[in-house]
Design a protein around this nucleic acid. Sequence first.
RNA 1: UGGGAUAUAGCCAAGUCGGUAAGGCAGCGGACUUUGACUCCGUCAUGCGCAGGUUCGAGUCCUGCUAUCCCAG
Length: 366
Amino acid sequence: MKKTNQKKVLLGMSGGVDSSVAAYVLKEQGYDVIGVTMQIWQDEKAEENTPESSCCSLSAVEDARRVASHLDIPFYVMNFKDYFRETVIDYFVREYRAGRTPNPCIACNRYVKFEELLRRALQLGCDYVATGHYAIIDQNSSTGRYLLKKSVTDRKDQTYALYQMTQEQLQRTLMPLGNYHKEEVRRIAQELNLPVATKPESQEICFVPDNQYGKFIEAYDGQITETGLFKDQDGHTVGTHKGIIHYTVGQRKGLGLAMGKPVYVTDILPAVNEVHIGNPENLMAHGLLANDLNFIPWDTLLTRHPVTIKVRYNASPVPGVANITEDGKLEVLFNEPQKAISPGQSVVLYDGDVVIGGGIIESRIR
RNA sequence: UGGGAUAUAGCCAAGUCGGUAAGGCAGCGGACUUUGACUCCGUCAUGCGCAGGUUCGAGUCCUGCUAUCCCAG
């Protein structure tokens, strides 16, 4: 029952369960679906030892191809390596070198999936780009603005990683899994006999398959990582650190300090190459400042706004207020102090299920 | 070679009147997780510097030795 004027969709297929089922759902909804896997980082021969542990590994290509074949949709592999390196890996390395903690998935979504992949989709004459993200794209009937909303499964909701999307991108994007639960998706995959039905969840940084991101950074930019001093809250030297790229604000493990009690990284000071440590209470913050902002229901925040706040991917939203400072930064104040606000991570603001927007954390307000 | 301390796992460290080796760090395994972290669970000294002795029983008491630290020379 194919219509001649049906909409064409370019679907990013990772080879995982989610994007595979997304292909099926889109097809069922009457879209003309084209599957594509983005090659983003692999050396041609490194894939042997990288099992299906990541959302974008190369072994994924063959899985995606089989799924596409199974569903009888056209399938292509596109080379995004240069673009990915510039917008994700370079950013990732630069941020760590600067003493911050980047979130590469957010950069990947922002630049690779919804900018470059979308651009190529439009070039190919597609109407939309689609992904298997758990999120809902909606339109406000009165303002006409496109909205990003949490998926029906709060546990799998991925809006946190998507807050940088623009109106133009949202208008051209489909996320067919937003109304599905993970269990339904797996069930559909099994009923369809998809070859990837039981693949595990993706995890860790896709371009650092052994999870040794410090080693990756050093191998990538070839720079020497200088060791430096650990200092406590009073400024006393308590040890030597392995180089600031190895630490994140809030980190406890791997410090190698025997203080007789658990201690945490409270601050990373690249200017003096110091890592400061302290007790859990030294991690608390009343708020934060963020830049590199994006807002979805509006162009910006015009007034002080009550919000719920996520300061990291796996964080329960907490209540607070947000407003824009005189110099254009986003200021977020929590109702209750929060711990381990990590510069470089993103803060995302919600009003109920609706993503208001967010930015990249610059500093905390104690 | 006068005095005083301390020697417990890779590292810090608790161990009360002798009663059958806390805890933390690191490590290892796992859960969680499309980032880094956090968190949670499990595991990690048949042995307490060495050698003897007392005792039903010693990391804990006694003797000797060794090592390190501190204060004086």
